[in-house]
Design a protein around this nucleic acid. Structure first.
Length: 286
DNA sequence: ACCCTCACCTGCACGC
DNA sequence: TGCGTGCAGGTGAGGG
């Protein structure tokens, strides 16, 4: 379920929790999670490595590790890149806690705690990336610029939008074009920009592209800020709950039939490319 | 290069 | 109570 704001919160929680810890052992129970690497090879690589830090690229969580004493040497450094997809979660278990169902990877840490990757739907993915290879890794190298970076500017968005004949809603979900939105925040960003989700991207006026750019940033930033009131707790059964702090902020998503906060019209829902899209028919006319 | 459809999974809410 | 259906916030492979 997580989109960029939720991933950002998981990254902060992990950074705070596991930076500096050494991985004593790594166990993989669902081989496809790390395929084509074998569980044995995975264990050999992570065993004895120390976690330097935790960062993010798009919706990928990057756990930066190094091995051996010489931290200056890049040679044996690697990144564990984790994508939560729909239901992936991290848990930080106490020694006596049971390992819950759907736990597909377990990292035994040097403080006797275990970091568990749990994923009910098994869509999540882990990649072991050798030092310096991040920008050459398939699935990561294709990603659009970070939304909060300099390269994601109105000019960039204009170039992407003008080249596309897809609907804006579909375009916003394409991580190689616009990074960080998912099905919820794509609807929310279009609502804030007052743009109809079915509008063809290439037909968007320059003024509206600027508005869309601002709305994308505002939605992501607000979601990160608002939800910080609900701290992501890696010790909860679910690792973290998206909870009310995230939902409270939705203005159209999952609000079919409710009144638009701007004009009072009934929010509509339609299935578009197999996924739900929500919009206000009056504020977001075609 | 672009874009569409389907596939990957489990669990939950719903109607009968 | 059970069973079938549709739905869920993400992406990638494969094809046109």
């Amino acid at each position: 379920m997580p989109e960029l704001p939720e991933v950002e919160h998981v990254v902060r929680a992990l950074r705070h929790t596991i930076t500096g810890r050494t991985i004593v052992a790594g166990e993989v129970r669902l081989p496809k999670l790390i395929a084509p690497l074998s569980a044995a090879a995975f264990h050999r690589k992570v065993k004895g490595s120390t976690i330097k830090g935790v960062s993010r690229r798009g919706k990928f969580i990057l756990i930066e590790c190094h091995r051996g004493r010489n931290t200056e040497s890049n040679r044996s450094d690697f990144i564990l890149a984790v994508h939560l997809r729909m239901t992936g979660k991290f848990l930080y278990l106490y020694p006596d806690d049971d390992i819950p169902k759907h736990s597909h990877a377990i990292f035994y840490l040097d403080n006797d705690r275990r970091l568990v990757f749990r994923d009910q739907r098994q869509f999540g993915v882990m990649k072991l990336i050798a030092g310096g290879q991040l920008t050459r890794t398939k699935g990561i190298k294709e990603l659009a610029p970070e939304p909060f970076g300099e390269d994601f500017n109105p000019e960039y968005l204009k170039s992407v939008v003008h080249r596309s004949r897809r609907s804006l809603k579909t375009l916003l979900l394409d991580q190689t074009k616009v990074l960080g939105l998912g099905n919820i925040y794509a609807s929310e960003a279009l609502f804030r920009a007052r743009i109809n989700p079915f509008k063809i991207a290439g037909e968007l006026s320059p003024a509206r592209i600027i508005r869309l750019h601002q709305s994308i940033l505002a939605v992501l930033r607000d979601a990160i800020t608002d939800s910080s009131t609900s701290r992501i707790d890696l010790e909860q059964e679910d690792g973290f709950s998206y909870g009310e702090a995230f939902e409270r902020f939705w203005q159209v998503y999952e609000r079919e039939g409710e009144s638009c906060v701007n004009c009072g019209s009934k929010i509509r829902r339609a299935t578009h490319g197999g996924r739900s899209t929500y919009w206000c028919p009056k504020c977001q006319r075609r």
